[in-house]
């Protein structure tokens, strides 16, 4: 049984039909990537899983249980972590407070301490900045904080939205190494990326989304070899790549 399964999900922003029957699944322990151009519906897919957007049709199952239609705080309570597009850290809270908000539903202080320890081990930079307001961090540090904050709930699956956006290439590599680490520690990952090259280099499987529909799905190697993916998303013979 997949840990996360979307079946024919339709979602709307007002009158805009943003998702037109998206089906995908993530197995336990996998990194699955969802690649596509700007506005293809990648973030919308993650927002729909998290309950920020209610699907009009279709089903979303987490560990076999229907979660579509649940409000976002109930989805989060199932330990689905989401590091949203644009980082969305709490700017006027300190790094420490942001991480504590990530553990909002953890009542056990020992779990909170372990969570902090884990995040600070993965991102030593955050420990150095512990008392700094999150709004004053650099883009890369905010991205680390967004991921760290999502990890604080000890998620069973982590939804990552464009973790490479706006970051210098060396920082992108650092972040992606850490994503692999998190996955090796046993967390399934659904990774949304415009940087298809990086995403496919760490993912097990991938889906390609275009104007709200999944047009391809294959192993990461299969997609890297795919002619359309190479042309449209890996930037070969084309400037279309993200």
């Amino acid at each position: 049984m997949p840990i996360l399964e979307l079946n024919d999900v339709h979602a709307y922003y007002g009158h805009i039909h943003a998702l037109k029957g998206v089906s995908l699944s993530v197995e336990e322990g996998e990194i699955v990537t969802l690649i596509g151009a700007n506005g293809a519906g990648k973030s919308t897919t993650l927002r729909t899983i998290s309950g920020l957007l209610r699907p009009r049709l279709g089903s979303i199952r987490f560990q076999g249980q229907r979660i579509d239609g649940l409000p976002p705080h109930r989805v989060a309570a199932l330990r689905i972590g989401h590091a949203p597009e644009g980082r969305r850290v709490f700017p006027r809270m300190t790094v420490r407070e942001n991480l504590e908000m990530g553990a909002f539903l953890q009542s056990d202080p020992a779990a909170l301490r372990q969570g902090l320890e884990r995040v600070f081990t993965l991102f030593p930079r955050l420990q150095e900045r512990e008392r700094q307001a999150a709004g004053t961090l650099s883009g890369g540090e905010q991205q680390m904080l967004a991921i760290g904050r999502a990890l604080m709930s000890q998620p069973r699956i982590l939804l990552l939205d464009e973790p490479s956006m706006g970051l210098a290439p060396t920082l992108v590599e650092l972040i992606f190494d850490i994503i692999v680490d998190i996955n090796r520690q046993g967390t399934a990952i659904l990774l949304v990326e415009q940087n298809a090259h990086m995403a496919l280099s760490i993912a097990h499987r991938g889906y390609v989304i275009q104007t709200g529909q999944i047009i391809l799905s294959d192993t990461a190697e299969g997609l890297q070899r795919n002619e359309l993916v190479r042309r449209a998303y890996l930037g070969e013979e084309s400037a279309l790549a993200g």
Binding site: S50, G51, L52, P71, P72, H73, A76, A77, H82, P84, R88, V89, F90, P91, R92, M93, E97, E100, M101, G102, F104, L105, R149, A150, S153
Partner: peptide
């Protein structure tokens, strides 16, 4: 307090607060 922090988080970013498990 926990509820006070939930208020501050919601004030700063409502969607992100909901993703933390806060009942907005």
């Amino acid at each position: 307090t926990r509820l006070g922090k939930a208020m501050r988080a919601t004030a700063q970013d409502r969607d992100a607060a909901a993703l933390m498990g806060i009942d907005v």
